[in-house]
């Protein structure tokens, strides 16, 4: 059965429900990883990109810019349009050449609705304030996904990442197919983070579930170039194993100088990527190699 699935994957044929059910069985985890790795290597070879991100809160004093940052990301939901604009301007003032990304798209959608603006108008105002990148689109939180992502495009902004707040869930097939469908209609998603952004501390996701979801995302969301794993949220060990299951981009490597102990530092990420048999390449938030 797995040999037949492998043949289909190699031929670029779509997988049937029966194929996917077979691959989702826990005892097929390594077969699933192997297939996702084949697809990933066909696209990217051994190249694995990573980006060092300095997160900036939506209010309060700004920290000094970390010299290693490849992206400054303003996080949190802005309470008002003016506060969003002000924060972008303040952050740009310290950013220098480093690309600035800000906010999550469904939060902006709600902000626009509350302010009586269209999402596109709000995004255009953020663009006029100097913003380049919308940091994230949690596609499962967007009521009108296509329209919202097209508004980003039409406002002249770039979407830095697309993600799922609650993860693909069980079974994960449906939500991953929706992401692939969304991309067929918008065509602008460069990266997709399949692992949930919200983790229940009482019942964290398991290693099997995480790896299965990364691998399935690589197989099903075949029209998005990069599958991301979050270094800070998921930790170096899981992030590294995810590279062998279809992920090719490591997001949210902390930009801290000097590297703090544990989960930090470009050297540690490079070492982990190489130890997993891949070739590291650092990029910035604009996807330019550094």
């Amino acid at each position: 059965m797995v040999a037949n699935i492998t043949r289909k994957v190699d031929a670029g044929e779509s997988l049937s429900e029966a194929d996917l059910t077979e691959l989702l069985a826990p005892h097929q985890l390594i077969s699933l990883m192997t297939l996702a790795d084949r697809v990933r290597r066909r696209r990217h070879g051994t190249r694995t990109t990573f980006v060092r991100v300095q997160q900036v809160s939506g209010s309060g004093p700004l920290p000094p810019r970390a010299s290693g940052a490849g992206e400054l990301q303003i996080v949190g939901a802005p309470p008002t349009v003016d506060s969003a604009l002000a924060r972008i301007e303040e952050t740009l003032a310290i950013a220098g050449e480093v690309p600035v990304s800000a906010f999550e798209l469904s939060d902006l959608d709600r902000l626009a609705a509350g302010a009586g603006l269209s999402l596109r108008t709000l995004l255009e105002r953020l663009r006029e304030a100097g913003l380049e990148l919308v940091a994230d689109a949690a596609v499962d939180r967007l009521p009108k996904k296509e329209a919202a992502i097209e508004a980003v495009n039409m406002a002249g902004l770039i979407l830095a990442r697309a993600s799922l707040t609650s993860g693909p869930g069980h079974p994960p097939i449906e939500s991953l197919r929706q992401v692939a469908d969304l991309q067929r209609s918008v065509g602008v998603l460069r990266t997709f983070r399949p692992l949930p952004r919200r983790i229940d501390p009482e019942r964290p996701t398991t290693g099997y579930a995480d790896i299965r979801e990364v691998a399935l995302a690589r197989l099903l969301v075949d029209n998005v170039e990069m599958i991301q794993v979050d270094w800070t949220l998921y930790g170096p060990k899981l992030a590294q194993v995810a590279l062998a299951a279809g992920a090719d981009d490591v997001d949210q490597v902390p930009a801290l100088e000097p590297p703090r102990e544990g989960r930090a530092g470009a050297a540690e990420v490079r070492g982990n990527v190489e130890a997993a048999g891949f070739t590291p390449a650092e990029r910035n938030g604009r996807f330019d190699e550094r």
């Binding site: 985890l29 964290p204 996701t205 290693g207 995480d210 930790g235 060990k237």
Partner: peptide, 8 residues
């Protein structure tokens, strides 16, 4: 290794 790699 933590629970996740432990389970893997």
């Amino acid at each position: 290794q933590g629970g996740k790699v432990g389970q893997l």
